[in-house]
Write a protein that binds this DNA or RNA. Sequence first.
DNA 1: CCAAAACTAGTACAAGTGTACTGCTTCTAA
DNA 2: TTAGAAGCAGTACACTTGTACTAGTTTTGG
Lengths: 129, 129
Amino acid sequence: MGGRPALSKGETEIARVLWDIGPACVRDIHESISQSRTIELTTVQTYLRRLESKGYASSRLQGRARIYSAKARPSTVIRQTVDDFVERLFGGDAVPLVKHLIEDRGISVDDLRELKELIETLERSEDKP
Amino acid sequence: MGGRPALSKGETEIARVLWDIGPACVRDIHESISQSRTIELTTVQTYLRRLESKGYASSRLQGRARIYSAKARPSTVIRQTVDDFVERLFGGDAVPLVKHLIEDRGISVDDLRELKELIETLERSEDKP
DNA sequence: CCAAAACTAGTACAAGTGTACTGCTTCTAA
DNA sequence: TTAGAAGCAGTACACTTGTACTAGTTTTGG
């Protein structure tokens, strides 16, 4: 499929920020991440370079600064990553994972209701295809 | 937390087999995996050694053969792995992942019903704690 | 008894990852 | 106008991971 090599943990962290704050320079990303943990600016720089070389980001020089933008859409990346994860840990069956998540994850009553509605909608649409 | 280093992809594959078929020697595990993909026996051996050194398995010699047993319970490992995963990809919020899974994963009508019941049970129990 | 089979322990090694330093260049403020 | 800040590209390096070979040791079928 996508052909892109999978993202590592650290790369995913950076990609999320990039999706979040949109096109940004190294410093912006670094600042965003620094709020939750310590990391060197040059480390962020390395990740961004790797993201670009794997095809998940692109960059252009704007004046003196290099601006990075996400290239793959989050939904695509999430899909691939989740596929892989479910395969790895549950042999491809998503149901046990869903159960684990809703049972074990302190999901709020409101969210539960919303999920239930989502399920009901799906049931209806699969009932009469 | 748990102190154990995280499992890699390949290690997880082996650990799942170990949970599945219970204490087993290298050859047993190898045979089980060979049904779905090609892998050298010695590769399996290496994985088992690594599982042991990371604290996820233990082994004893039974006669000439070394028998490996899982040491961590699946639920524990799954919890840790899922925690990490949700954090990494969704900033700790499980709801989007659940949505993705039930919307996008071709879950059967029967399973959907079951999930709905699970949710209803949870709603009731959280309603009056 | 002996060659082949079954096992193990040890070692290897390239690719990927996390983390970061260095050194060069261009702005900018005093 | 010049020293420090801000950028960037390049390089480094130890650790992990995936994958496997090799060389020994014990067992076993003929």
